[in-house]
Design a protein around this nucleic acid. Structure first.
Length: 198
DNA sequence: GGCTTGATCCAG
DNA sequence: TGGATCAAGCCG
């Protein structure tokens, strides 16, 4: 069943991030349907989180969607090459988001391999925030600010993940964020092959 | 380990 | 207006 607005609009982004583990991420892009299980995420807590693009209340064309309702997509270009897919959470004016860092392919493996220019389905297909967007066909220009209750990118129930199956670590690549870089807000499914850190 | 790559941000 | 910076991936 498709996740509802209520799921995304809860106030605690860390709690939602853990809940997203095991959920199914679907895309239907240019008529091609793909689906994958979310294996790895990071939480970004709006204006009070130095690692978040909306820290200190920064508003710009890029961050604007984070200030809207929960359950929308925030996709942006990183290092000039990679499209990183985030889920906006919390209610209007609260700029929280969750970065998806790894997925386990379920449906549409051939389409994903074609997009990634690969001949096999190994973790290099979709274990990393940039390459999973590539595998699923998500691009900044086309998929910024989409409603995740729509029919282009959406999430649904998936695999049940219990608390003791969830691993925790600091977030990746946010050393610039001072003390906030230490927050243990990266979550992943333990013993899963489809993680960005091997 | 070193290179790629370009939007974004802020200093001036 | 320009240059430093960056939620990464690829090749070796």
């Amino acid at each position: 069943m498709k996740l509802t607005r209520d799921f995304y609009e809860r106030p605690n982004v860390v709690e939602i991030a853990k809940d997203v583990l095991g959920k199914t991420l679907h895309t239907k892009i240019n008529g091609v349907y793909t689906a994958a299980i979310v294996t790895e995420v990071e939480a970004y807590a709006g204006r009070n989180d130095k690692a978040c693009h909306a820290n200190n209340g920064l508003r710009s064309k890029r961050t604007e969607v984070m200030y809207g309702q929960g359950g929308f997509s925030y996709v942006y270009l990183c290092y000039g090459i990679h499209h990183l897919f985030n889920i906006v959470t919390n209610k209007k004016d609260f700029a929280d988001a969750i970065l998806i860092r790894g997925v386990e392919p379920l449906i549409g493996l051939e389409a994903m391999q074609l997009r990634r220019n690969m001949t096999k389905a190994n973790p290099r297909l979709s274990s990393g925030p940039g390459i999973l967007s590539q595998a699923l066909g998500i691009r900044t220009k086309d998929h910024y600010g989409l409603d995740l209750l729509g029919d282009t990118i959406w999430l649904s129930d998936g695999r049940e993940i219990t608390n003791h199956e969830i691993g925790t670590s600091p977030r990746i690549g946010v050393d610039y964020a001072g003390e906030d870089a230490l927050k243990p807000w990266r979550f992943y499914i333990k013993d899963n092959r489809w993680l960005s850190k091997r």
